[in-house]
Design a protein around this nucleic acid. Sequence first.
DNA 1: CGAAAACTGTACTGACGGTACAGGAGCGCA
DNA 2: TGCGCTCCTGTACCGTCAGTACAGTTTTCG
Lengths: 206, 206
Amino acid sequence: MRKGRETRAKILDAAEAAVLAKGFGATSIDELIVETGITKSGFFYHFRDKNELAKALLERYIENDERIYDEIFGRARELADDPLQAFLIGLKLLSELLSDLPNGHPGCLVATMCTQERAFDREIREINRQAALMWRRRFGAMFRDIMQVHKPREPLDADQLADMVSTVLEGGIVLSKALKEPKSLPDQVLVFRTFVRLLFQPAGQP
Amino acid sequence: MRKGRETRAKILDAAEAAVLAKGFGATSIDELIVETGITKSGFFYHFRDKNELAKALLERYIENDERIYDEIFGRARELADDPLQAFLIGLKLLSELLSDLPNGHPGCLVATMCTQERAFDREIREINRQAALMWRRRFGAMFRDIMQVHKPREPLDADQLADMVSTVLEGGIVLSKALKEPKSLPDQVLVFRTFVRLLFQPAGQP
DNA sequence: CGAAAACTGTACTGACGGTACAGGAGCGCA
DNA sequence: TGCGCTCCTGTACCGTCAGTACAGTTTTCG
């Protein structure tokens, strides 16, 4: 009864490692069943097709992502009362975490699945959309908190600012991969951090 | 003698349309040869393998991309003497151009090929890197020009600012695709534009 | 013990990328 | 006129991969 979930997890572990190493399309089911020590029939007992594997992988990835954000910005919130300071600390922590990844960010699954090298099904696209909306809600709430205390020097929409966080992260991942410079991603986060600081800094202050 | 290039272009046209519609992996050679009215042998006469097709497609895409940037920021430069104003106008024009795409941005090939759903070869990764470096040089020069006239309110590296342009574009594409909101991309460009304006606006000015 | 869950084994299909190779049409040139 | 080159066609074949079908077996839990 429980062994099923174990095997499923083992497949997902092998899949995650392979997908992050060489991409989803280049990861074959045959290779996963060898790794997992299972048969092909066994694989298809757990996943109807490769799309469902992608779905499970994506859901897992997003869950983990959310957990990391909870941790980082929760910790930041403990370190500062002011929501702006907390957010700035959170971005700093995030940048440091991204710097510490030895080979750079392994790549966002949400991005890989919506830059659609392969044709993924509607369910996956919907999960992707929900993930992006969750990011918007999370960071949008933070910006609204900030705006209740600090007047922005320019009128900007909280949701668009929230989207900017996702944009910088996703774009930074793409750029650092294209450039083969892992440092670009944390650097871009810090540039964005400077922009946010600038936006809510009272006029005339250094 | 010249007919070869014609056929090659026809293949690339068919490939570009198909790839932008459903992704590179989902585009089969068989389908391209039907579209082009050529045989499989004919296809492999022009392209050693699918990787070389990707390469040709990518080179074409980047060339076109550069042309668009030349046009937009060239036009912007005509409209304003001040490099900051010119850059801000350029971003506005870019945002408008992105708004006018009926189905949203079709997706950046550089991004699809470095979020590596499939394993692309080194040559392609190098072309990708060169493209990102060209963007950095282009926008880096603009920011250096701006900095010779305007003092930034915060000390930021011109190259990192230049990378931010690529980041916002690539990230915006990913986000607008994930959200299924084409407007997000031009919106993000405008948010970035506000940040740039803020950065070079003299302290104390509204 | 019995039933359901969790597989194994075998055999097969169709799509796809790719190879090999022989040959032919059309064109420019000496 | 014929040689050679570019630009293909045609045919046959291969390995990999996702996926199907389905019968049978082991494992696990109540």
